[in-house]
Amino acid sequence: MAEQTLANHSDRLNAINIYPVADADTGTNLYLTVRAAAQALADLEPSDVGVTMATAGRAAMEQARGNSGTLFAVSLAAMAEPLAGAQRLSGPLLAASLHRAQLRAWSALSEPMAGTILSVLEAAARGAASVESVFNGDESNQALAETIEAAVCAAREAVVLTESQLGVLSEAHVVDAGAVGLLLILDCLRSVIIGEPLQEDLMDGLSGYKVQDPNIALTMPEQDGVEVMCTITLTPLAAAGLRLELDGMGDSVIMSAVSEQADPTGAYQWRVHVHVPAATLALEAIRAVGDPSNVSISALSATAAKEAHELI
């Protein structure tokens, strides 16, 4: 359901995608990331909730696209951890999963910012926790329904606030695209849990989200540089060193372990994301510490497209 919903909304999400760069691809990136997770589950044999979520999370992490796609993938993988061994989802487990997800997402970014998908994830976790504190461990379907309802309601309020939390969004009079994308995904989860359709009025009143609103991303100045993404196996110490080096040469640095399982040498698989002036800068640093896979280079401007194509 989330895959189809994001496909339906991708054009509008792209149109308001101006932070951290106006590259008009947030909707597309979230759709492709969710599609990777959905495809991984297509042939999965019925199993416990934790295995299902972990499988989806790993697939999303390995194929994540863009800032928002990467942060969503990090969140999805983190949500699986409290669900290990669970045969069904409950209110307490959902609250714990959302809490774990927001902690992991905030820590994955070198410079996390309020007014983004992070704020919405945090609000959803807070909304779920408020219900859990009232129901106090109740694992009934009613408690689960109220937990997801509270999470979506809090997320919707957080999306509205994004416009006032980031200067570039305030000036453009739009809400954050990644934040809206996460809200749509959460409403898909709500729909599945309680067996009701998606909320038709969920997007009403969100600045810049009417179909007739202009494509604000097209009016923004051209962005320099490229986005480099890859998966690489490193020890935690080596990963910390790579993060520090990437922080020094670019921005929008996201690094998170794909899973909590280390190989025999104590190394983990990491998903890496960074915006840099030139792809060679990041690739040299990455290849100096390991052998990257799933390498993706996307131009943040038309002038960088030729280099991105040549280096992939």
Rank of each mutant, 00 (worst) to 15 (best):
S298G: 13
T231P: 01
R126E: 15
G167Q: 10
T231E: 12
P221H: 01
A124E: 01
L184W: 00
M249D: 07
A64Y: 02
T162E: 04
L32K: 13
D25P: 02
T265W: 10
T303H: 09
S107M: 12
E307H: 00
N29I: 00
Y31K: 15
Q212F: 05
E260W: 14
S140H: 00
G50D: 04
P214A: 00
L283C: 01
D224N: 12
Q269W: 11
A262Y: 02
M220A: 14
A145G: 08
D25H: 05
L234E: 06
L218Q: 13
A123E: 04
A95R: 01
E200K: 15
S10M: 11
A172I: 06
D263F: 13
T162L: 04
L32S: 12
T55H: 05
A54Q: 13
G241H: 11
V49Y: 11
M79Q: 02
L184E: 04
T5E: 09
G69V: 09
M61C: 05
G266S: 05
P264F: 06
N17L: 10
T70D: 01
S301H: 05
P197K: 11
A59I: 02
L184S: 05
D263M: 07
G115Q: 10
A155N: 02
E149D: 15
P46T: 03
V274Y: 03
E3Y: 09
A172S: 09
P46M: 11
S293Y: 12
L189F: 10
T55Q: 07
G225H: 12
A56Y: 07
A124H: 04
L184G: 03
D201Q: 15
A154E: 14
A129E: 10
A59Q: 00
I297A: 10
A38C: 03
A302R: 14
A96S: 09
D201W: 08
N67F: 00
V159F: 01
T303V: 13
E157Y: 01
I117R: 08
A239G: 02
G181F: 02
T303G: 06
S130C: 11
L144R: 08
C188D: 15
V180P: 13
S133L: 13
L234N: 12
L206W: 13
Q142M: 14
A80T: 04
G91L: 02
D176K: 09
S97D: 00
S75G: 06
E222L: 14
